[in-house]
Amino acid sequence: HMTFVALYDYVASGETDLSFKKGERLQIVNNTEGDWWLAHSLTTGRTGYIPSNYVAPSD
């Protein structure tokens, strides 16, 4: 899985979304859904959809 880092805080707007904090590391499970990607937080262990423009590839 690709690892990304959150650029901003995001508060989930629905049950399927994943809240995260700036700097949180996320594994992308599925990024074929356009602007919303299914991600797994390496910080909280939770999985949900995130806005793709809130994250950047982590080196």
Rank of each mutant, 00 (worst) to 15 (best):
1 H>M: 12
1 H>D: 13
1 H>K: 13
1 H>S: 13
2 M>C: 15
2 M>S: 11
2 M>T: 13
2 M>V: 13
2 M>F: 10
2 M>Y: 08
2 M>E: 12
3 T>Y: 15
3 T>C: 11
3 T>I: 15
3 T>R: 07
3 T>H: 14
4 F>D: 00
4 F>A: 07
4 F>P: 01
4 F>V: 15
4 F>H: 07
4 F>K: 03
4 F>S: 04
5 V>D: 05
5 V>K: 05
5 V>R: 04
5 V>F: 07
5 V>A: 03
5 V>L: 07
5 V>Y: 08
6 A>E: 00
6 A>Q: 00
6 A>P: 01
6 A>C: 08
7 L>K: 05
7 L>R: 03
7 L>N: 04
7 L>T: 04
8 Y>G: 05
8 Y>F: 12
8 Y>W: 12
8 Y>H: 08
8 Y>M: 11
8 Y>P: 00
9 D>F: 02
9 D>T: 06
9 D>A: 04
9 D>M: 02
9 D>P: 04
9 D>G: 04
9 D>L: 01
10 Y>P: 00
10 Y>F: 08
10 Y>S: 02
10 Y>I: 02
10 Y>L: 03
11 V>P: 05
11 V>E: 14
11 V>M: 10
11 V>S: 10
11 V>K: 08
11 V>I: 13
12 A>R: 05
12 A>V: 04
12 A>I: 03
12 A>D: 03
13 S>T: 15
13 S>W: 08
13 S>A: 13
13 S>H: 13
13 S>E: 13
14 G>Y: 09
14 G>A: 13
14 G>D: 08
14 G>H: 13
14 G>I: 09
14 G>F: 10
15 E>Y: 09
15 E>D: 14
15 E>H: 11
15 E>I: 10
16 T>I: 10
16 T>Y: 15
16 T>D: 14
16 T>A: 12
16 T>H: 15
16 T>S: 13
16 T>F: 15
17 D>S: 07
17 D>I: 07
17 D>Q: 15
17 D>V: 06
18 L>P: 05
18 L>I: 12
18 L>N: 02
18 L>S: 03
18 L>G: 02
18 L>V: 06
19 S>I: 05
19 S>G: 08
19 S>C: 05
19 S>R: 04
20 F>D: 00
20 F>T: 02
20 F>M: 07
20 F>V: 08
20 F>P: 00
21 K>F: 09
21 K>T: 09
21 K>P: 01
21 K>R: 13
22 K>S: 06
22 K>C: 06
22 K>Q: 08
22 K>D: 01
22 K>R: 10
22 K>L: 05
23 G>H: 05
23 G>N: 05
23 G>S: 04
23 G>Q: 02
23 G>I: 00
23 G>P: 00
23 G>L: 03
24 E>K: 00
24 E>W: 02
24 E>N: 02
24 E>Y: 01
25 R>V: 15
25 R>K: 13
25 R>T: 12
26 L>E: 00
26 L>M: 10
26 L>S: 00
26 L>I: 07
27 Q>N: 09
27 Q>A: 11
27 Q>P: 00
27 Q>L: 15
27 Q>T: 12
28 I>S: 04
28 I>G: 03
28 I>T: 03
28 I>Q: 03
29 V>K: 08
29 V>N: 05
30 N>S: 14
30 N>W: 08
30 N>M: 10
30 N>A: 11
31 N>L: 12
31 N>A: 14
32 T>R: 08
32 T>D: 13
32 T>F: 10
32 T>M: 12
33 E>H: 14
33 E>S: 14
33 E>I: 13
34 G>H: 12
34 G>V: 12
34 G>Q: 12
34 G>P: 15
34 G>S: 14
34 G>M: 11
35 D>M: 10
35 D>W: 10
35 D>E: 12
35 D>F: 14
35 D>N: 11
35 D>R: 07
35 D>V: 10
35 D>C: 10
35 D>Y: 14
36 W>E: 03
36 W>V: 06
36 W>Q: 06
36 W>P: 06
37 W>H: 03
37 W>K: 04
37 W>T: 04
37 W>M: 06
37 W>F: 06
37 W>R: 02
38 L>P: 02
38 L>V: 07
38 L>S: 02
38 L>C: 09
38 L>F: 11
38 L>A: 03
38 L>M: 08
39 A>G: 05
39 A>Q: 00
39 A>P: 00
39 A>R: 00
39 A>D: 00
40 H>Y: 14
40 H>D: 03
40 H>L: 14
40 H>N: 07
40 H>G: 04
40 H>W: 08
40 H>T: 15
41 S>L: 03
41 S>C: 04
41 S>H: 13
41 S>I: 03
41 S>G: 02
41 S>P: 00
41 S>K: 02
42 L>K: 05
42 L>S: 05
43 T>M: 11
43 T>E: 13
43 T>L: 11
43 T>C: 13
43 T>Q: 10
44 T>I: 02
44 T>P: 00
44 T>K: 02
44 T>N: 06
44 T>R: 03
45 G>R: 06
45 G>D: 06
45 G>M: 06
45 G>W: 04
45 G>I: 01
45 G>F: 06
46 R>Y: 08
46 R>T: 07
46 R>Q: 12
46 R>F: 08
46 R>N: 11
47 T>P: 01
47 T>G: 05
48 G>F: 04
48 G>M: 02
48 G>H: 03
48 G>D: 01
48 G>K: 01
48 G>Y: 02
49 Y>R: 09
49 Y>V: 06
49 Y>F: 11
49 Y>P: 01
49 Y>G: 02
49 Y>L: 13
50 I>W: 00
51 P>T: 01
51 P>G: 01
52 S>L: 04
52 S>F: 08
52 S>I: 06
52 S>H: 08
52 S>Q: 07
53 N>R: 12
53 N>G: 10
53 N>L: 10
54 Y>M: 12
54 Y>F: 13
54 Y>E: 01
54 Y>D: 02
55 V>W: 04
55 V>Y: 04
55 V>Q: 02
55 V>D: 02
55 V>S: 02
56 A>V: 14
56 A>R: 10
56 A>M: 12
56 A>D: 06
56 A>E: 13
56 A>L: 09
56 A>G: 10
57 P>L: 12
58 S>P: 10
58 S>G: 10
58 S>N: 09
59 D>G: 15
